[in-house]
Design a protein around this nucleic acid. Structure first.
Lengths: 233, 233
DNA sequence: CGGACCTTTGAGGACACTCAAATCCGGTGG
DNA sequence: CCACCGGATTTGAGTGTCCTCAAAGGTCCG
């Protein structure tokens, strides 16, 4: 794990993030001064829930889980971080530490933004807070959606709705959904057991609705059939 | 349902809300210009999920549920609004409409703040956004807690954790937890069936841990026993 | 080829749900 | 004041979905 100043290419990608794309050049300079490049290996813990917030992050590449743990070693994944995106922003303002723990599932590259200095920076540039409000609101929206799904959906509906909401792109084989590497992790995201998840995917496969490939890619041949599971009682 | 200008007493209570308590007198004047007093009967729908956001609210008195609906008439309550507090703020910034529906369970008094004009007001006074960030962050924190509870807790643990997190005050009879009027509503908040909730409360009663009164007050005689349910596997 | 880990399938069980009936409670009217 | 009604709560019986435990394939890598 090493920590460095930011290369121009990475800075450019950071500037394109929704949170920062409205920054003027001079404002962005100010932001960059608080940033460090950081590379972490797979299975590395970034921070734990409840811990005081020392930084927020922008992911350049890799795969990270935000999760909470139960007592018997059970684990609920709240969110996957898999593209270029910022995370842990909420911890800046709540004064209650990180709401979740964060751990890399793959080797990952991050930009780490010091929270104390960034907090001061934002207070000195209050006009920059608007995007932050939007970002938190959308995250909140997603959490509400997840609560709804957890409460009102059965196992098949949970899987179907995840597949439909998380596909990458389309090609001639149908929509392609890119899943976390291990079944265990997807199961922890959906609050299902590994076995139940497998069985559901097996049923979908048998119906001809989906096709699985190396357990991290799923081709959706009949997305309307999955959608149908969500629409009817 | 009537809509009026704000009485001084109500204005004072609004000014004490965390979101607005940092407002200077002149800033607060500006806010008041966007507000209307509103009284609604029990069982009145304020807004529905997905609807475009036309206002945010501050509750003066009453009881309101924020909820989502499934297809077969099932209902998941995301949050109860029961004290003086603001709600629906997040809908201001996400551009995705209200994330939840809102309906009164009792006769309620509200202050309605026009969203379009309040949005403009905030953009013209960016220094006022800081509290808003805090408020959204804390709400986000709570949602994460709720997801954790939904995913990792069994029926008894859900009830225990709700009782421990939602008591009003202490007196010689032990901690008093003030519940929503009907079992049905608490069940919908905890994602349990009415019957399961009853059975759990019955078990707690039989153990001597709690005592129920007119189904809306619960005395916690042994909060540590409830806490114990949450601490051990 | 062997081992470690992951995925898939099978059998059995548990927790919470559904359906149904009994009891409790508040309100209304005789 | 009491009897009655409707709605809410509580209790009971039976069922189903998902979980747990276990074992059988797969895949990757040394």
């Amino acid at each position: 794990m090493r920590s460095d100043t930011i290369r121009a290419e990475h800075a450019a990608r950071l500037h394109k993030a929704p949170l920062f794309s409205a920054y003027s050049d001079s404002e962005f300079e100010g932001l960059l001064a608080l940033c460090h490049y950081q590379r972490i290996a797979a299975e590395t813990t970034l921070f734990k829930a409840q811990e005081a917030c020392s930084a927020i992050y922008f992911m350049l590449s890799g795969f990270i889980e935000l999760y909470r743990e139960g007592l018997n070693g059970s684990r609920k994944i709240i969110e996957f971080i898999d593209g270029e995106q910022t995370f842990a922003e909420a911890a800046l303002f709540s004064g209650q530490g990180y709401p979740v723990s964060a751990r890399s599932l793959l080797d990952s590259e991050l930009i780490r933004i010091d929270s104390v200095r960034f907090s001061l920076f934002l207070q000195q540039h209050p006009q920059l807070n608007w995007r932050m409000l939007g970002s938190l609101s959308i995250r909140l929206h997603h959490l509400v959606e997840q609560i709804t799904s957890l409460s009102l959906h059965n196992a098949e509906q949970k899987v179907a709705s995840f597949l439909l909401e998380n596909y990458d792109d389309e090609n001639q084989d149908g929509i392609v959904s890119h899943l976390p590497g291990r079944r265990r992790d997807l199961a922890a995201r959906l609050s299902l057991s590994e076995e139940t998840l497998c069985r559901v995917l097996g049923r979908f496969r048998k119906e001809g609705w989906v096709q699985t490939k190396d357990s991290s890619r799923v081709y959706l041949h009949h997305p309307e059939a999955l959608q149908n599971l969500l629409d009817k009682a």
